[in-house]
Simulated assay, not measured.
Amino acid sequence: MSSQRVHASEQTAWIAAPAGVVYGLLADAVRWPLLLPSPVHVERIDFDGVRERLRLWDVAGGERVRSFHVRRVLHPESRTVEFEQEDTARPGVPTTGTWTVEASGEAECRVTLREERTLEGLPAAGTARSRQEWEAEPAEWLAHLKAVAERWERLDELLLSFEDSVHVDGPAELVYDFLHRIEEWPQRVPHVDAARVVEDVPGVQIADVDTCATPDGRTVASRAVRLCFPSAARIVFKELVTPGPIAAHTGEWSLIPDGDGVRVVCARQVMLSEDAAGLVPGPGTGLVEARRYVRTWLGRASTETLRLARWRAQTAVRRLR
Score class of each variant (00 low, 15 high):
S3F: 05
R5W: 03
A8F: 06
E10K: 10
V21R: 02
Y23N: 02
D28F: 08
R44N: 09
R44A: 11
R64W: 07
R66F: 12
R71N: 14
V73I: 12
E77T: 11
T80E: 14
E82H: 07
E84S: 07
A89W: 12
T100L: 08
S104Y: 07
A107C: 08
C109P: 03
E115G: 10
T127V: 15
A128N: 06
A136N: 13
A136R: 15
W141V: 15
H144T: 11
A149P: 00
A149Y: 01
L158V: 11
D169A: 13
G170Q: 10
P171M: 04
P171V: 06
P171S: 05
L174Q: 11
L174V: 09
V175R: 01
R181H: 13
E184K: 10
P190I: 07
V192Q: 02
A194M: 07
D210H: 03
G217S: 06
V220S: 03
A224R: 04
F229E: 09
E239F: 02
P243C: 03
A248Q: 09
T250E: 01
S254N: 00
G259P: 11
R268G: 07
M271Y: 05
S273W: 09
G278P: 11
L279T: 05
T285H: 14
E289M: 01
R291W: 01
R295Y: 06
L298E: 09
S302K: 05
T303P: 00
T303F: 02
L306R: 02
A309P: 03
L320I: 12
R321I: 03
